[in-house]
């Protein structure tokens, strides 16, 4: 299937294998956090590691692999890296604020402040 894979030397292959293993394990842990953690405000931290380190490792591995496979510089994965690094913080902030506003609205509707899920501003010291 992948005809060029035999030509890859160990000096290129080993870093690619390490990066792929690290990246895939991190992706899996991030998704596991999404399922395992009990509270929305904790769950939002799970996908953050998927997006930063997991995606980063797999993208770098892909860059090294194709540069070796095609014997020329293939770095267009940098575009996805830059795009993901720019957009992931915006997405996280917007989802967080949506959750906070929804919880605030729900709390003011139910008149039951003080529950664990509700956004509470820390008191000033």
């Amino acid at each position: 299937m992948n005809l060029g894979i035999d030509t890859v030397t160990p000096w290129v292959g080993l870093p690619v294998v390490m990066l792929l293993l690290l990246g895939s394990i991190i992706v899996l842990i991030g998704a596991l956090g999404l399922v395992r953690l009990p509270n929305f405000y904790q769950r939002i931290h799970g996908p953050a590691i998927t997006i930063t380190l997991g995606a980063g490792c797999i993208l770098i591995a892909s860059m090294i692999f194709f540069t070796a496979l095609q014997s020329r510089l293939v770095i267009h994965e940098l575009l996805i890296t830059a795009f993901v690094l720019l957009t992931a913080p915006v997405v996280a902030m917007l989802i967080m604020r949506a959750a906070v506003y929804r919880d605030l609205r729900a709390a003011s509707r139910n008149h039951s402040p003080g529950s664990d899920e509700v956004y509470q501003f820390p008191r000033e010291k």
Partner: peptide
């Protein structure tokens, strides 16, 4: 609803990574 949006976003990111890994698989 916010849990579902977060899960959908992560699913989408994983789909992107899956497509990259398929690219590695088929060269």
């Amino acid at each position: 609803a916010q849990d579902r949006v977060l899960a959908l976003d992560t699913l989408w990111m994983c789909a992107m990574l899956l497509s990259l890994a398929l690219g590695l698989r088929y060269g």
